[in-house]
Amino acid sequence: MDKTFQCLLVSSNETGGYDTTISTKQVIDLPARDVLIRVHYSSLNYKDALSASGNKGVTRSYPHTPGIDAAGVVEASHSAHWQPGDEVIVTGFDLGMNTSGGFAQYIRVPANWIVRRPESLTLRESMIYGTAGFTAGLSVAALLKNGLTPDHGTVLVTGATGGVGSVAVGILHRLGFAVIAVSGKATAHDFLTSLGATDIIPRSDMDDTSGKALLKSRFAGAIDTVGGNVLATVIKSTEYGGTVTCCGNVNGGDLPLSVFPFILRGVQLVGIDSVQFPIDQRAAVWERLANDWKPAALELMTYEIGLAALPEAIQTILKGQMQGRTLVRID
């Protein structure tokens, strides 16, 4: 297919840095995969910003088009599972990492990376969620699987103004949980309250340096998005039999913790991975996000931009100043 399209292209420069430009590419240059998708929406995640900054732990070679999320319409397919006109979602796997990603009008991907758009979710809404929202959904699913219900008590969400955190607050509120949000942003109170948080506490309150093996029990469960000592403090503050999920490491990859919360309080720590989550289980999570988990405040957490505004938005998220979800309108 000899067709051109617009994309965000990241290239190395002579000074050793990386430049982002809106460029024109040809569909024929995309990787030889099963399904060609015309992208309508994507979303901005921290991993995209790392890829756009030349982080070799995310993307090995450049020039490259980031974008770990994409939602659009199948234009051509070599797979019997997908037909032209199908409306689909792609998140995770290698999209936007070492495979040309969703910050482009076209992607070409393997058939087994694709999920059909749920009937009650628009393509736009699916990318308000994106990988961050899908990760929030997996985190909530883990709490529910381990038996947590609203009558057990309060659920804590750290990094609550971020992508995963804001969606998690909204989902938990929709399900009837009392949610305490943790944020380092002093101006975030109104935003988090609008999503359904019943209380907001500063990040410093969840960064214990006392060295104690256990702290006062405060939460029935928690969704942690930052890691490090904050995660350790959360675990030490979780009630007997509670569950804590972990999906991020912006606060560090080490976990300064003893075994006592696990063997004296029976706390469970569940790791959440949305990249390689099995494709045969993804559709069920998307159905829940489309229906009984959908936050009433989904639009309130959304900031919409076009391709041209991506370079500035990437710098914003790298500085830790992003709030909620950044939806990227591609088509």
Rank of each mutant, 00 (worst) to 15 (best):
A213P: 07
L148P: 13
D190A: 13
K216F: 08
D208Q: 03
S204T: 15
L144W: 06
G133F: 03
D208T: 06
G162R: 00
G211Q: 06
T161H: 04
T161R: 02
R117T: 15
A132K: 00
S126R: 03
A186L: 06
G170C: 02
G184T: 11
G162L: 00
L215P: 09
G196M: 11
V179D: 06
L148K: 07
L215H: 09
G176V: 13
R124Q: 14
P118Y: 05
G137Q: 08
T187G: 13
G159Q: 04
D205Y: 10
L214N: 08
T122N: 04
A141I: 05
L175R: 15
G211P: 03
H189K: 12
T161G: 07
L138G: 10
V164W: 00
L138A: 12
L156Y: 02
G184H: 03
L195S: 09
I180P: 05
A141F: 09
A186K: 13
A220Q: 04
E125G: 01
A197W: 11
T187M: 05
R218V: 11
M127E: 07
K216E: 15
D205F: 06
R124C: 07
L214I: 07
T154G: 09
R203I: 10
L156P: 02
A178N: 15
L215G: 14
I201W: 11
V115P: 12
F191G: 04
P118F: 03
L172E: 08
R117Y: 09
D205Q: 13
I180N: 09
L143D: 10
E119I: 10
A142W: 02
D151L: 06
G211M: 06
G147M: 02
T135K: 00
I128S: 04
N146M: 06
R116A: 14
V164F: 01
L175V: 13
T154P: 14
R218T: 14
D151W: 05
H152T: 15
R117D: 08
G211T: 11
D199T: 15
V164H: 01
D208H: 08
A136G: 11
H173C: 11
T135I: 05
K216A: 15
L156K: 00
G159S: 02
V157N: 04
G147S: 09
R218I: 12
D205R: 05
F134P: 03
I171D: 09
T135L: 01
G163W: 09
V179Q: 08
P150Q: 04
F191Y: 14
I180S: 10
A168C: 01
T198F: 06
A178L: 12
V115H: 14
A136L: 03
I180Q: 13
A181V: 01
S120T: 12
L192F: 05
K216S: 13
S194R: 01
K212E: 15
L144T: 15
I171K: 06
